[in-house]
């Protein structure tokens, strides 16, 4: 019989991306929850090297189910078997930076170790059907997601979108962080006041906390919209099929360039293929200039209304 003993250190319990977390760290951006723990995040020493690594590059090392990284001025992080993260913060590390690496880098690795490959973009609940808004950085996906939220639609997840495990019955998105990140440019563009909002260190972004505008209920995922810009005057929407559809799903995977390096390309390929069979994918082309957010929303809502769940 194994007995695990924790010191008197208070353990916090959270849930994000469908993962229940127990940790001594204070992660106050997360939703508090008490479920059976899937992931423990501990403060302890991390190894200097992984022995027998199959993959390594400048700033991380990986082998099956193990991932080690050391970020200068932040600390060392070690993710194991999708159920444990060990974090060894540097002395001079800013706490916010540690959290940003945990959220944006290590949690995605944990998801990947669990065979779940998150999408990159924003997820919005459009009248009981959730949609993913994706696209290359700078194409205006955040602006569109914020515009949706300002129009009264709820946010399910921002930046990283984690799907449920078992797609047998239904495919849905687990809620993420109850926040929406916004850049100074987007804030100006949408007339959003940034006063009093927390800033992300080293980035030109602020954090908008959400309460009632956040959707914690399970909403089936119906479609992915990839935003692209083009040289025409009107917003245009087109459903994608076949190779284009698969390419779109693969390309809009979170940290896609990392997946091959940690040795999970094969799993990712099957995952993307299965997903392509389950959801619709559209390309939304928007004029590179001008204010077209409302037309973009209109077009998306029109397509969503046509889909039967």
């Amino acid at each position: 019989m194994v007995m695990t003993h924790y010191s008197n250190e208070k353990m916090n319990h959270y849930s994000v991306y469908g993962i229940n977390i127990s940790t001594e760290f204070d992660l106050n951006e997360l939703i508090v929850s008490t479920g059976k723990t899937d992931l423990t995040i501990l403060k302890a020493k991390v190894p200097n090297f992984l022995t027998g690594t199959t993959q390594s590059c400048a700033f991380f090392q990986a082998k099956e189910n193990e991932f080690l990284t050391r970020i200068e001025h932040v600390g060392g992080f070690y993710a194991i078997e999708g159920n444990k993260i060990i974090c060894e913060p540097d002395q001079e590390a800013e706490y916010m930076s540690i959290k940003m690496y945990l959220y944006g880098f290590l949690l995605p690795v944990i998801l990947m170790q669990r065979g779940r490959f998150p999408m990159h973009g924003s997820c919005i609940d459009v009248d009981g059907k959730s949609i993913v808004i994706s696209g290359q950085s700078g194409v205006g996906k955040s602006s569109l997601a914020i515009a949706f939220r300002m129009a009264g639609y709820k946010l399910v997840s921002d930046d990283l979108i984690a799907l449920n495990d078992d797609w047998h019955d239904d495919i849905y998105v687990h809620y993420g962080f109850p926040v929406q990140k916004i850049t100074v440019d987007t804030a100006k563009f949408l007339n959003v006041d940034l006063v009093g909002l927390e800033r992300i260190p080293g980035e030109d972004k602020s954090i908008i906390p959400l309460t009632t505008e956040f959707q914690k209920n399970v909403i089936p995922l119906t479609a992915l919209f990839e935003i692209v810009t083009y040289d025409e005057e009107e917003v245009k929407i087109k459903e994608l099929f076949g190779g284009e559809k698969l390419r779109c799903i693969i390309a809009n995977t979170y940290n896609v360039e990392m997946i091959g390096t940690i040795g999970l390309a094969q799993e990712h390929f099957s995952y993307g293929t299965e997903l392509a069979k389950k959801i619709k994918v559209f390309r939304l082309s928007r004029p590179i200039h001008g204010f077209t957010l409302e037309y973009q929303m209109e077009n998306i809502i029109k397509e969503i209304k046509k889909i039967d769940v």
């Binding site: 559809k245 390419r247 390309a265």
Partner: peptide
């Protein structure tokens, strides 16, 4: 590794960690 979606082929080379798609 290959897969077919809507009659079109998706391919992956594990060796290269790259994905490809072919038209009809």
């Amino acid at each position: 590794s290959t897969t077919t979606i809507d009659g079109e082929l998706g391919m992956m080379s594990e060796e290269k960690g790259k994905y490809y798609t072919l038209d009809f």
